[in-house]
Design a protein around this nucleic acid. Sequence first.
DNA 1: GAGATGACGGGCT
DNA 2: AAGCCCGCCATCT
Length: 113
Amino acid sequence: MEAGETFYDRVYELVRQVPSGRVITYGHVALLLGAPAAARAVGYALHSLPAANDVPWWRVINVRGAISLKGRGAQADLQRALLEGEGVRFGPDDRCELERYRWWPDEPVAERR
DNA sequence: GAGATGACGGGCT
DNA sequence: AAGCCCGCCATCT
């Protein structure tokens, strides 16, 4: 789309920083980008994520610690598998201990100038 | 330029 | 406790 940095790019850049075995919520991503209420936009950003990308989108989950991804689908199943492969365990209710895996960067990307 | 959409979140019923 | 509704933001048609 626009040249350089769009909101999408910021989302990707931030998600790219999430280490293996850790997760982050849409709301947190939005908050770190300076838009605490832009959780929807964050999801939209990942939705538009191109096939060829180096972004660990599967580490982004909703505030419940579960996978949203339209509720279900091949992608959702894949995401769960990837997270489990990194050590993130899901309970019987398809949720993981968010408080335990939640990751937080040292400094907000938004102010990283 | 306006309207509708969506991988969400929080609040109220 | 579970479910429904509204609002937020950015992008797309």
